[in-house]
Design a protein around this nucleic acid. Structure first.
Lengths: 181, 181
DNA sequence: ACATTAACGGAGGCACCCCTCCACTTCACT
DNA sequence: AGTGAAGTGGAGGGGTGCCTCCGTTAATGT
């Protein structure tokens, strides 16, 4: 169905290995991870990496897009919950997913064209959750989804003593978003 | 008074120039700024940089300590204000000071020995402000100063569209810290 | 003025990373 | 099995940063 011509079997394997290795490397080292290390740990030559992903940005995007996909899909899981529950559960999941993946955090700081569409999908998934909570009177109405996303992504990126503290701080922040007494 | 032997005049000048250049460089490039660039833009040789600061960490610490000093001193300026006002004003100032200085943000994520004492001074300056607000019933009592600091430092580091949004998001977060109605 | 010595600075060796190029290998199709 | 095209991988050239070493410069004290 997609207009892409099918990849040869070995090429497909290598490409997948590269994506997995890159996801791991970007998670640990941020977007400046060494491409040679990525190729090595994927078990392919550096040339293969460059054929699949001519620029660092291409590789970064490929990893990033699939990460985000997983995140957006999670928004469907919370559709059944009460408005505030739905929003806060999704945001919690966002933080848990993204905490070790600087890629996602870095993406939100950037303004590159490739991220535009990704960010839009992010909005498509999360913004309705906020609006629903606002209409239900559960969330304050003087904030936009962009505000919430950045608030949460800041927490994602900050260092914490342990996961427990991260949860606690996130809860504080979410209380700020909740409709006041 | 200090046990240090006095530096020769030119040495002192160079040291100061290095600190200024490093502060600038760390602000722009984060803690991985090129040491050779720092030396160059301070107008000294790389050898001079290494004599004054044998490791990158030494230089980073030296810059960082003076930045933090300025911040802590700001806590005195707010002593006259009402409890909640005092806390939130100081935190706002913290964000404004630190927003462009990744060094401070990075420091909070780290656990190196040199940062221990610095963090303590941070606490000495800010913790009383939180406690005062808590005793006055203006801040919730189930948060520690460490939680607040990390919440705020996350916001410091996150990317925002403009300063206005940063202020708005910070206000939301602070509402989470405030005593709930 | 001059000797002493702290301080200087940058060349050079090392390590790492980026990216290109092309001789070689492997797949897929017959 | 054979063949052509798709795919591979890593050597190599260029760049940058780190840090040491030591011949040179200049501040200080008399």
């Amino acid at each position: 169905m997609p207009g892409e011509k099918p990849l040869r079997a070995d090429a497909r394997r290598n490409r997948d290995a590269l994506l997995a290795a890159a996801a791991e490397a970007f998670a640990v080292h941020g977007s400046t991870a060494s491409l040679e290390d990525i190729a090595r740990s994927a078990g392919v030559g550096i040339g293969t990496l460059y054929r699949n992903f001519p620029t660092r940005q291409d590789l970064f995007d490929a990893v990033y897009l699939s990460e985000i996909d997983r995140l957006c899909r999670a928004a469907e899981d919370v559709a059944e919950l009460a408005p505030w529950q739905a929003l806060s559960t999704w945001l919690r999941r966002f933080v848990r997913y993204a905490a070790t993946k600087r890629a996602i955090y870095e993406a939100l700081s950037r303004d590159s064209a490739a991220f535009r569409d990704t960010r839009e999908r992010m909005y498509a998934a999360g913004e309705p959750l906020l609006e629903r909570a606002q209409k239900a009177g559960a969330a304050r109405v003087d904030v936009g989804f962009d505000d919430v996303l950045r608030l949460v992504s800041g927490i994602t990126a900050a260092g914490f003593v342990d996961e427990e503290q991260r949860e606690r701080v996130l809860a504080i922040a979410l209380d700020g978003v909740r409709r006041q007494g």
